[in-house]
């Protein structure tokens, strides 16, 4: 017995044998993928390994991060929201038009957020109370929002409001001479708030419960109606907020903005490890999903020789791989 002594595990042993709980695995996988891709980029391209590249990645995708956060709520509850891209366009248009008419930028932004939330709430009501498939209800929302955008103006409207433009160009200097913008701060704040809501509030936990088994959640006496309408309202709010970030990014309102962006958001959420059937996933995963998509784009621009359509192909392949892996994992569990 005493002849063999068990050596104290070294730090390396602990790292080597660390196995995360299975529910965190998809997020860990996405994180590893992101690190791997970034590392690969750093080796392949000159100047890729720079904090500023990472910060630009956040800056160029801040609106998508916010959209993906809202989408995460909806998908966790077992639904889907196809309207967010159109709501982004509508938001840019309302912001541009109202400011053109001389509204205060604050009133204009508040209006945008209100309209987005109301649209989301409306779709949630259709989904829950009228029992309409989320796919159909939000498809209707997609057409409605895009149509409203055209109704306001067929042409692109530039945003020239001084306060708004100032906000768009205001940069925050970080230690080391790096800089970022308020849009990034807003996007990351959204992620933090959403992560807290999902992990630590009754509303958030009920979102998971509804996604896990809606009939059970109802019989457990949980407030299913509040949650099901709520997630679409949140997604609508996030789409409007994403629209404002997009307006800050492009300084214009245009009916052809953000066409198909809802699909990018869904792709980011799925690549971030959230189960499309609901009940499993994390907001942080969605953030990582957006970063993975953004890194692919950064690759293309650094390479310079690749056609930008390679982005879509890469996203398609990644999405397929992740969905197949998810399927295999859930099958093994059942």
């Amino acid at each position: 017995m005493s002849a063999t002594t068990v050596p104290n595990p070294t730090t390396w042993d602990r790292v080597r044998t660390y196995s995360p709980a299975s529910r965190y695995l998809p997020v860990v996988a996405t994180f590893a993928l992101f690190i791997g891709m970034f590392g690969f980029g750093g080796i392949s391209y000159q100047g890729f390994f720079d904090w500023q590249v990472f910060l630009s990645l956040l800056l160029d995708n801040s609106f998508l991060i916010v959209l993906a956060v809202g989408m995460t709520f909806v998908i966790l509850s077992g639904g889907i929201d196809l309207s967010v891209g159109s709501v982004v366009a509508l938001s840019t248009m309302i912001a541009a038009k109202t400011m053109e008419m001389g509204w205060s930028p604050y009133l204009s932004m508040a209006t945008v957020l209100l309209v987005g939330t109301l649209l989301g709430t409306l779709m949630g009501v259709l989904v829950h109370y009228l029992d309409i498939e989320p796919f159909i209800a939000t498809l209707a929302g997609l057409f409605l929002a895009r149509g409203l955008t055209y109704l306001i103006s067929k042409n692109s409207i530039p945003i020239t409001d001084e306060t708004f433009v100032e906000l768009a160009f205001a940069s925050i200097t970080l230690p080391g001479g790096y800089y970022t913008t308020w849009t990034v701060v807003i996007a990351l704040a959204t992620v933090v708030v959403a992560a807290y809501v999902l992990a630590r509030t009754r509303f958030g936990r009920t979102v998971y419960a509804v996604g896990g088994n809606e009939a059970s959640a109802m019989l457990m006496g949980l407030r299913v109606a509040v949650v099901k309408v709520g997630v679409y309202a949140i997604s609508g709010f996030c789409a409007a907020l994403g629209g404002l970030l997009f307006a800050l990014y492009t300084l214009s309102g245009y009916s052809l903005h953000a066409v198909g962006m809802e699909l990018d958001a869904i792709a980011a959420v799925v690549i971030g490890g959230t189960l499309l059937t609901g009940g499993r996933g994390f907001v942080v995963g969605s953030l990582l999903g957006v970063l993975v998509l953004g890194t692919i784009q950064t690759f293309i621009s650094f390479d310079g020789t690749l056609n930008s359509w390679w982005t879509r192909i890469a996203i398609g392949v990644l999405l397929l791989v992740f969905v197949v892996v998810q399927r295999l994992m859930t099958r093994r569990q059942s």
């Binding site: 009754r202 009920t206 896990g212 088994n213 059970s216 457990m220 499993r280």
Partner: peptide, 25 residues
């Protein structure tokens, strides 16, 4: 069994009436 498999045992027991602190669970 009308519970949700994707949450913990404790959450399944207390969902909807979790003890809270500062507004969070």
């Amino acid at each position: 069994v009308n519970l949700v498999p994707n949450l913990t045992v404790a959450e399944n027991m207390l969902l909807g009436r979790e003890p809270r602190r500062f507004g969070g669970i």
